[in-house]
Simulated assay, not measured.
Amino acid sequence: MALSWITMWTRCLLFFGVLVVQDQVSGSSSSSMQSSSSAESCDTYFLVTVPAVLQAGTKTQFCAILYEPGEFVVMTVHLKSEDSSQTLLKKGTSNSFMKCFSFHVPLVEKCEIQLFEVKVEGPTVYSKEVKKVLIKTVKPQTFIQTDAAIYNPGQTVRFRAVTLNRDLKPVDEKFDFVLVKDPHNAIIGQWVNQQTRRNILEQCFQLSSGASEGYYRIVLKAGKERFYQSFKVQKFSLPKFDIKVTIPKEISIGQEHFEVEVCAKSRCGKPVTGSAVVTVCRPVQNRIHCSSVVTYEDHKHLQRTSLCTTKTKQLCRSGCATLKFEVSAFTGTDPEAFFDVLDVSATVRDKFTSKYL
């Protein structure tokens, strides 16, 4: 006599239970209990499933099956810790049933293991099964966001922080201190006893004109927890010109040549006057990246370099230039030594400023 049951839990966990005469059901995603006992001409089967990991302070479910008890029995379910016991179910019946029951997971200060105990008692039936479950605490998490990822020296850095609880809802938080550290770990900004307003903490500070380039870090401390966010300081300017490179999607080794078109225009759409420098490379493969033994042939291979060709051409009035490259320059003597791709890079030199774009 056997009965199979499948139940789907939230968080997309799937649990399987088959009522057979044994002490344990394998599976790392859930705890399950089952037992049987003889009463003259019939057996009593039961199965209880519960998630192996419970989230503290939340409401969850366990499911129970009692199959043809044959007499009046009482099923009792407890959740026990070292110093407390919570009765989750006490149900007396002489009929089969399959039902899920809700219960509140107790609040704990830190993660701990408790015992999930199932007991079935009757005039001729007694069975007790105990499994371990992990009650996991989910602490609020604080997220820090800056108004930019990169700043120039002398710019103002603005950032904000929000704390979310286990239900992903913003909550108020008090921070012991807020620090800003430079790349040398020196503190350049500090605030103490900061309280969020409308669930958000906002601060700003100005970088000095001679601020060191590199990665800076924002540190928030709330109780024993610390939260971090980083940003970068470097001198930069937005590009004043756009460069567009057009190349064929596929190139056949049977072709004699292929073309690369480079166009350069200013932000207002005017063509750039100057010259285009285009480099096309067929990269060499690294055949020994998965090998621990290097042979003489491998050393010969390592001495090979990518097949590259560079050409320069003046831009026409439209700000474009078309350059032709011979396919034979990228075939090589050993085709298997190179990847079947071409890397193309283009640089434009402005005629009036002599600067490369």
Rank of each mutant, 00 (worst) to 15 (best):
215 Y>Q: 13
37 S>P: 01
219 V>K: 07
145 Q>L: 06
332 G>W: 06
117 E>A: 09
149 A>T: 02
121 E>Y: 10
219 V>A: 03
154 G>D: 12
62 F>V: 02
66 L>F: 05
204 C>V: 07
23 D>R: 07
280 V>P: 02
298 D>S: 07
65 I>W: 15
297 E>D: 10
224 K>V: 07
149 A>H: 00
184 H>L: 14
234 Q>F: 09
16 F>V: 11
308 C>Y: 13
177 F>R: 09
158 R>H: 10
350 D>C: 11
215 Y>F: 07
57 G>D: 09
172 D>C: 03
203 Q>E: 15
165 N>E: 09
343 D>C: 03
181 K>Y: 06
129 E>I: 05
336 E>Y: 05
15 F>L: 01
61 Q>M: 11
153 P>N: 06
13 L>F: 08
13 L>E: 12
129 E>F: 00
53 V>M: 08
131 K>D: 06
59 K>I: 13
110 K>E: 15
324 K>D: 02
180 V>G: 13
116 F>D: 03
29 S>R: 13
40 E>M: 11
153 P>T: 05
83 D>V: 14
21 V>T: 01
128 K>F: 12
111 C>S: 14
281 C>K: 03
163 T>N: 06
156 T>H: 08
126 Y>R: 11
232 K>V: 05
155 Q>L: 04
108 V>Q: 10
171 V>R: 10
66 L>N: 01
331 T>Y: 04
328 S>A: 10
142 T>D: 00
263 C>E: 15
275 S>H: 11
187 I>V: 15
306 S>N: 15
106 P>Q: 02
202 E>A: 15
270 K>G: 02
240 K>L: 10
263 C>S: 14
84 S>N: 13
45 Y>H: 02
168 L>K: 14
86 Q>Y: 07
112 E>S: 12
14 L>C: 12
67 Y>K: 14
87 T>W: 00
339 F>R: 01
82 E>Q: 10
200 I>Y: 13
346 A>R: 05
7 T>H: 07
275 S>I: 08
43 D>L: 10
273 T>N: 12
189 G>L: 07
169 K>F: 09
11 R>D: 15
159 F>L: 12
295 T>C: 02
336 E>I: 05
298 D>E: 06
55 Q>S: 15
289 H>L: 07
301 H>F: 03
126 Y>M: 07
66 L>M: 13
48 V>D: 08
316 C>Y: 12
119 K>E: 13
308 C>M: 13
114 Q>W: 06
247 I>N: 06
184 H>M: 13
249 K>N: 14
76 T>V: 03
130 V>W: 01
274 G>T: 01
35 S>K: 08
10 T>N: 11
151 Y>G: 08
238 L>N: 11
248 P>I: 07
299 H>M: 14
231 F>E: 10
192 V>T: 15
353 T>C: 05
327 V>Y: 03
258 F>M: 08
319 G>F: 08
302 L>R: 14
158 R>C: 03
311 K>H: 00
228 Y>P: 04
180 V>L: 14
243 I>Q: 02
125 V>F: 12
225 E>Y: 04
261 E>N: 11
105 V>G: 06
324 K>W: 02
41 S>M: 00
107 L>H: 12
49 T>P: 03
172 D>A: 12
96 S>K: 07
